[in-house]
């Protein structure tokens, strides 16, 4: 008898604390966070389906501000007509100010909030993040438009898309974390280069391509000189640390070329671009390639290899031979 009473008591007194009817939830798909005038401004994108017969999704936006993130979130949640559901959150856009100076607040808030799903995309914005969020195009849901942008492999972005990866790089030694920047032009979203977390430095689209080559994230990169445009099919970059030098060896496979293509010209072009990129980041000691981390992983020693040691870039270009009918030269 005692066991039955205990069982009934356990069941009736302990359950239901997180009971939430499905029709009484406000599903939040994307959030933007801005920092202006010492205030955090948070905007939620809430997905609704107003049509009972078909799935006709619409987004509504609610904003609120506060001196810290908790207050800002609370002020927005008050305005919603249902309980917020963050488990389907897929995108957070933060503005440049937060990326430079207040990233730790965001990281702390999201990581320690059990309601927010950590498997989200994190993007930056030069302009106000809420303007990016609200400036939706034909899709009418910003997060869907941006997911479409990511799924299109012809778009040029660095592979640090997810919040977990960005935070992981940020807290790791020997590497600086990078974040993509979004922009909008006539209701069309596009990637506008990338930046470094807790740093003022920005990189443009061309730098994004070089960064992707150097970090083995090549998918359909197009490089042009004045006369020719080539598409890079595959690239394999290896880092070697010998004789107090960083040797970077690149094996790049080209996909599309035209007749009388001169391999040497493009070899020189790509080498010069990579060299220039590397010199730029070395000048300001921006180890976004994780050179120090790679050194530590190989030799187990912490050393500022990136800053102090010279580098040598060796590019080997090959052409994808399947179906090749054009002549390929290798002359200076």
């Amino acid at each position: 008898m005692k066991k039955i009473i205990l069982l009934i008591t356990c069941l009736l007194l302990t359950g239901c604390y997180n009971y939430n009817e499905i029709e009484k939830t406000a599903i939040i798909d994307a959030i933007s966070i801005d920092y202006e005038n010492n205030l955090y401004e948070v905007t939620f994108e809430v997905i609704k389906n107003n049509d009972l017969d078909t799935l006709n999704l619409k987004a509504i936006y609610e904003s609120g501000s506060g001196s810290n993130l908790i207050e800002a979130f609370y002020n927005v949640e008050k305005k919603l007509d249902n309980n917020p559901l963050f488990s389907h959150l897929s995108l957070i856009i933060i503005n440049d100010e937060i990326i430079k100076d207040h990233f730790d607040d965001i990281r702390d808030f999201i990581l320690r909030n059990p309601k927010i799903n950590n498997n989200i995309y994190l993007m930056g914005s030069f302009n106000k993040a809420s303007d990016i969020l609200k400036n939706n195009s034909l899709n009418e849901i910003t997060s869907d438009a941006i997911k479409g942008l990511i799924n299109n492999q012809y778009n040029n972005y660095v592979n640090n898309l997810s919040f977990n990866k960005i935070v992981n790089d940020d807290i790791s030694n020997g590497i600086l974390s990078v974040i993509n920047y979004l922009d909008v032009n006539n209701h069309a979203y596009y990637f506008n280069g990338f930046g470094i977390i807790k740093n003022n430095h920005h990189f443009n689209s061309d730098d994004t391509k070089i960064y992707n080559i150097l970090t083995n994230n090549v998918t359909n990169i197009v490089i042009s000189n004045n006369d020719d445009i080539i598409r890079i099919n595959k690239a394999n970059t290896k880092y070697d640390f010998k004789n107090h030098e960083i040797n970077i060896k690149l094996d790049i496979e080209l996909a599309s070329i035209k007749n009388d293509f001169n391999l040497k010209t493009f070899n020189n072009l790509i080498t010069s671009k990579i060299t220039q990129f590397y010199e730029n980041i070395k000048k300001d000691n921006l180890d976004i390639l994780g050179i120090n981390q790679k050194y530590y992983q190989r030799y187990g020693k912490k050393k500022d290899y990136f800053k102090n040691e010279a580098f040598n870039i060796n590019v080997k270009l090959t052409v994808l031979k399947n179906g090749l009918i054009y002549e390929v030269k290798n002359e200076t």
């Binding site: 009971y19 939430n20 009817e21 997905i47 009972l52 799935l55 488990s87």
Partner: peptide, 28 residues
């Protein structure tokens, strides 16, 4: 899944379930 673990349901299905239950006066 619909009352406690909504995070396991894909977004589109969640939205259509939510819409379908709007007219029902009883808890599920």
């Amino acid at each position: 899944l619909t009352n406690y673990n909504q995070e396991t349901i894909p977004l589109n299905i969640l939205l259509s379930l939510s819409t379908a239950r709007k007219t029902v006066p009883f808890p599920s």
